[in-house]
Amino acid sequence: MARLSPVFFSFVLTTTLLLLADPASAVKFQIQAYRYPQSKCIWNPIHNNALIIVTANVGPGEGQQVDVEIVDSSPQKNVYLSKKNINGETRLAVTSHAEGEVGVCFKNTLDSSYPSEKASKAARIIDLDVDIGADAVDYNAIANQESLSGLETEMRKLEGIVKEIVDEMAYLKKRELRFTDTNMSTNNRVQNFAWFTILSLAGLGAWQIMHLRSFFKRKYLID
């Protein structure tokens, strides 16, 4: 019977962990310029205390100002960072404060002196990369700083990926417990309401019987 080599086993393990880990998000898009622009946001799921690295490469555009803002979808609507008039490659790093989604929002403001007849063609190209969690860690810098070998660097990467998976499982377990508590609470409320309805109907029925009995006695229909 053939035996699996350690190299093959390591390859399978690494591939599996990479597939389970949160992938990096990369997108390239065009944002139209307006005098009073609306924000255009790119959203990614995040966990609490996750490192987020945003790399935005903004193409040239005369008479246009691109502003960026990093926010989340929590009830508090946290604003992690806001930067105006970015050009070329801009690298931003923040740490999340809540579970949910993080949004990288852009506005492209058209200068008031820009010719109106050319305003419809005013736009800039943005190449956006969002790295979250283990993907945001610069392992090459860590390897150089700590003098790690190639294998040690890969193991450090796997350690980060495994930690993300464990955190993801803990988050899912927490959500499951919260949903279970919600279901139990809802079931208890429905059950209490059902008992209240039954008792109310029984009381109303008893009152109607007593009322009809009293009415018939007054009319001498019954003894």
Score class of each variant (00 low, 15 high):
149 S>V: 09
120 S>E: 11
127 D>G: 08
143 A>Y: 04
134 A>S: 15
143 A>E: 15
123 A>Q: 10
125 I>W: 10
121 K>W: 05
154 E>H: 07
126 I>L: 10
121 K>N: 13
149 S>H: 03
126 I>T: 03
127 D>H: 08
138 D>K: 05
131 D>V: 00
139 Y>D: 07
118 K>R: 09
133 G>V: 01
131 D>Q: 09
149 S>N: 13
145 Q>A: 14
154 E>T: 10
153 T>W: 04
148 L>T: 08
150 G>K: 01
147 S>Q: 09
131 D>Y: 05
131 D>G: 00
125 I>Q: 11
130 V>H: 04
121 K>M: 04
123 A>I: 01
144 N>C: 11
140 N>D: 13
138 D>L: 13
153 T>H: 02
141 A>L: 12
154 E>G: 04
149 S>W: 04
117 E>L: 12
150 G>I: 11
126 I>V: 06
131 D>S: 13
141 A>I: 09
124 R>P: 00
116 S>Y: 11
117 E>R: 07
134 A>L: 06
133 G>D: 01
120 S>A: 14
132 I>A: 02
150 G>A: 06
130 V>S: 00
149 S>M: 15
124 R>H: 03
142 I>M: 13
152 E>T: 04
129 D>Y: 00
117 E>D: 09
153 T>A: 14
133 G>W: 01
118 K>A: 11
118 K>V: 03
145 Q>E: 12
125 I>P: 01
145 Q>S: 11
121 K>Q: 14
116 S>W: 14
143 A>F: 01
151 L>Q: 15
120 S>N: 12
131 D>H: 12
143 A>D: 13
136 A>M: 05
151 L>A: 08
120 S>H: 14
143 A>L: 07
129 D>T: 08
136 A>V: 11
152 E>G: 10
134 A>M: 05
140 N>T: 08
126 I>H: 02
136 A>N: 07
142 I>Q: 03
153 T>M: 15
134 A>E: 15
129 D>E: 14
132 I>W: 03
130 V>C: 03
127 D>Q: 07
135 D>R: 13
146 E>H: 11
147 S>D: 09
135 D>V: 04
122 A>T: 03
128 L>N: 02
129 D>V: 07
130 V>N: 00
131 D>C: 07
143 A>Q: 14
118 K>C: 06
130 V>E: 02
139 Y>V: 03
147 S>C: 10
140 N>Q: 10
124 R>G: 01
137 V>Y: 02
123 A>D: 09
116 S>P: 10
133 G>I: 02
127 D>L: 09
128 L>F: 11
153 T>I: 06
135 D>F: 10
127 D>I: 03
147 S>H: 08
122 A>M: 04
146 E>I: 05
153 T>R: 15
135 D>N: 11
138 D>G: 12
119 A>Q: 09
124 R>D: 01
133 G>K: 00
130 V>Y: 02
147 S>F: 07
142 I>A: 09
124 R>A: 07
129 D>H: 03
148 L>Y: 00
130 V>R: 04
137 V>T: 12
133 G>S: 01
120 S>V: 05
142 I>H: 00
